[in-house]
């Protein structure tokens, strides 16, 4: 195994870490959700990279047998994308409500208000 064959995964890791960084570092609730999305999308890329086969084509069966890329990760990621968008929708809805209740979507300002009440 050569190190070079792994560069694809490393790009994914970098993306993943950017996403995670945004989630942990930013105090803005919507930014956090954006970060979560980046984090998740990078994991999707990880899965799809697993499925790729050198010289393979999309897994739609054709007359002449060729080598196909692995369909299973595709299926999993279809499901995971849906889960991701569902989480996003719910998270954003919560953020909107929080804005309604506190007038801000900055985490530390919310904490201040909570501790005073």
């Amino acid at each position: 195994m050569e190190i070079f064959g792994l560069y694809n995964y490393w790009v994914v890791v970098v993306l993943m870490m950017i996403g995670l960084y945004v989630v942990v570092a930013s105090g803005n609730l919507i930014k956090k959700i954006v970060g979560l999305n980046i984090f998740q999308t990078s994991v999707f890329i990880l899965y799809i990279s697993i499925g790729k086969l050198k010289g393979g084509t999309a897994p739609i069966l054709m007359e002449d047998p060729a080598s196909y890329s692995n369909p299973l990760p595709h299926v999993l990621i279809l499901t995971a994308i849906v889960v991701g968008v569902a989480t996003t929708a719910l998270g954003l809805a919560l953020a909107v409500r929080i804005y309604g209740a506190y007038g801000t979507i900055e985490e530390d300002e919310i904490e201040e208000q909570e501790s005073t009440t």
């Binding site: 719910l90 998270g91 953020a95 409500r97 929080i98």
Partner: peptide
């Protein structure tokens, strides 16, 4: 209203957890 922030925090932590599980499965 504090339940909103509690739920939001849970959502962020929960999603990170779930994504970790997803990476593990991968």
């Amino acid at each position: 209203p504090r339940s909103l922030t509690a739920a939001f925090r849970y959502l962020v932590m929960g999603t990170i957890g779930a994504t970790f599980i997803l990476i593990g499965i991968a």
